[in-house]
């Protein structure tokens, strides 16, 4: 190579180095960035569930004993249609408005059971105990049990299920 073609800015070696690393980084980014999106995209979007669910006739629920009502909803996760089961506790008390609790423990989302001897909701995962009105009696939960917004329509009890 004759001297007059030599660049004043860089020699051939540094030029090749820079071009190689620039092309390499570009190729890595072209593959790498979509891969991040590929991994996390199922986590977002869709299903802002907003529904009123009927729990049947209010009169059918006994007074003073929390009563479990189970229902399932069809959900789509990825390619799979599956039925997601829900449990709610209906508490009716004389002269008070009916209260409906979610059976999902506020600690780490296990399901609580009504324990008549302890007069409370018990979570089998980490031994949390809530009283009849959902307040924490003992164990790790950070807040009382979650309640649903309710409405009555022609003697039927409805809860407002919102997700997403």
């Amino acid at each position: 190579m004759s001297r007059k073609y030599r660049s004043p800015v860089m020699d051939r070696r540094s030029f090749v180095k820079i071009v190689t690393s620039a092309l390499g980084s570009l190729m890595a980014a072209v593959v790498g960035l979509p891969v991040i999106q590929y991994f996390i995209s199922p986590a977002f979007g869709k299903e802002a569930g907003d529904d009123w669910i009927s729990l049947g006739t209010l009169e059918d629920y006994p007074f003073n004993t929390p009563t479990l009502f189970n229902f399932t909803l069809t959900k789509i996760n990825g390619w799979e249609r599956s039925s997601q089961s829900y449990g709610v506790f209906v508490l009716r008390e004389e002269g008070k408005e009916v209260v409906v609790f979610s059976d999902v423990c506020t600690h780490l989302s296990c399901r609580v059971n009504w324990n008549p001897e302890k007069e409370g909701y018990f979570c089998p995962c980490h031994a949390a105990l809530f009283d009849k009105h959902g307040n924490v009696l003992s164990g790790p939960p950070p807040r009382p049990m979650d309640r649903y917004e309710t409405k009555l329509d022609g003697g039927q009890l409805f809860i407002h299920l919102r997700e997403g």
Binding site: A43, F44, K75, N77, G78, S82, G164
Partner: peptide, 15 residues
């Protein structure tokens, strides 16, 4: 964000 990325959505599922 971490929970959703781990589960691939809000629920534990096939994903």
């Amino acid at each position: 964000f971490i929970l959703r990325v781990l589960r691939g959505g809000t629920d534990l599922s096939a994903v």
